[in-house]
Design a binder for these strands. Structure first.
Lengths: 247, 247
DNA sequence: AGCCATTCAGGTACCATGTACGCAAATGAG
DNA sequence: CTCATTTGCGTACATGGTACCTGAATGGCT
């Protein structure tokens, strides 16, 4: 009997090799997921089709369905395999700011290593074990400060929102420069996209123009920019904590 | 000569009805976009296929390509048509906090009216005229406070990040309750998703458990929760402003 | 050893979707 | 009236997810 309820992939264990009758599996979820991740890293997640993954493994597309119910579930597995690469200590150190800087750096590293990760993460509500582990670390960093759990969730959300959009921005910028082959200085006057140039030259949006033309963080390295924004978020969190703590 | 460069949709004007020879257009970008928006509102963006939109208009799929170069461009048009519904005064009032609360409320209204909007917005870097108008309003609210343009961009980014994830959360929650038909009180003990229940019962992630089980904002209406989170973000921004202002 | 239930491999096939191409119909200038 | 031009849209193809089916492998049971 095949139960075909559309339940989470994390509730569907891989067929383990019990010593019963039947042919033994020639592949594994982990192997399939790793292959999918490799393809997505190299050519984008849209290249990781079932046929392509199977081809890379030297088999037919339908074989994968012995291991993964649907393609979407494979995305969840990919996300969690990437999250597994996030290296964190077992528990928080007591220095919440230091812990979050550590977490932020790890997240950025993994997010850039797998440029599809953040996009998938925001498009799918998934809660794999490794994502839970990372999330728990973030929540834990705020424990013991006298904060309400809802406030903690909110602060972690603030941090995550920043991390995701900063990493997304960095990836977008990387793809842009890779496609055009221009460095950031020449970009704004030589390329900048014909449309953005037109908008800028129209002068219809003065503040937008300033944000495009007068940016003083343009000469910073991406990592410095990331760190700068992170410091602002952490400043904001630090400023918020006293007012949240019920005295 | 057809120029087929993949440039932004905003650079490709719709064929206006010049008084030359040739059959006159029977449809329009706006009409097509409106139809797509209606379908997406009612059945999700994945239902708004080219064939379906065309069918709704009583024509064939390929007719749409006389008005829109690619389906992706239609997404940009949909986004901007939704953003056009955001009602804002011409300029900021001088009370930045009030202006941002106004903007946040409008964004939430439109985001909930078009549940696909936020997802599309974060998956596509688009800059249609109405999105620019709204963005300009946000930037403008921070003008005159002695802030660097980069800092202003950062603060607007913080606010937008919050708005997007709060609205996304609310939409997810709406879909969840619509699918299960359960109210929030019964949800956590009757449904909560078999997987989340398993995670909670495993006790492996104590802080996560608290965030699921001990939430005190659960009894608030979605709007109150939104407003509460918004106030926190604005508090954070207010706390940040003095330190950003070069004295 | 031989039968058999069970499980896997993977080919074939179906359906949905984006969209290139081409031709016919409409339209206004000359 | 002629004809270049532009739209309407049917046909067709490529791609991708995946249902189904057949055959092969495997180990327990008699």
């Amino acid at each position: 009997m095949d139960d075909d309820e559309p339940t989470s992939i994390w509730m569907r264990p891989e067929r383990q090799e019990r010593s019963g009758p039947g042919r033994r599996p020639g592949y594994s979820r982990e192997q399939i997921t790793r292959t999918a991740v490799q393809i997505a890293d190299a050519e984008g997640v849209e290249a990781a089709t079932m046929r392509r993954i199977a081809g890379e493994l030297g088999t037919g597309a339908m074989s994968l369905y012995r291991y993964v119910p649907r393609r979407d579930d494979l995305f969840d597995l990919m996300i969690d395999q990437a999250m597994a690469e996030v290296e964190l200590p077992d528990g928080p150190s007591g220095d919440w700011r230091g812990d979050l800087i550590l977490l932020a750096g790890e997240t950025r590293t993994i997010g850039l290593r797998h440029p599809w990760l953040i996009a998938l993460l925001t498009s799918r509500p998934t809660l794999g074990p490794h994502l839970l582990r990372v999330h728990e670390f973030a929540l834990d960093a705020f424990d013991g400060l006298g904060l309400d759990i809802d406030d903690i969730t909110g602060l972690v959300g603030m941090l995550n929102d920043y991390l995701h959009s900063a990493i997304r921005r960095e990836i977008g910028w990387l793809e842009e420069t890779r496609r055009t082959g221009l460095d950031s200085e020449r970009w704004k006057r030589d390329y900048m996209g014909p449309y953005v140039r037109q908008v800028v030259e129209s002068g219809a949006f003065p503040m937008f123009n300033r944000s495009v033309l007068d940016s003083r963080t343009a000469h910073l390295t991406p990592e410095e920019r990331f760190r700068h924004g992170l410091d602002r978020i952490l400043d904001a969190i630090a400023a918020l904590i006293p007012s949240l703590r019920p005295r």
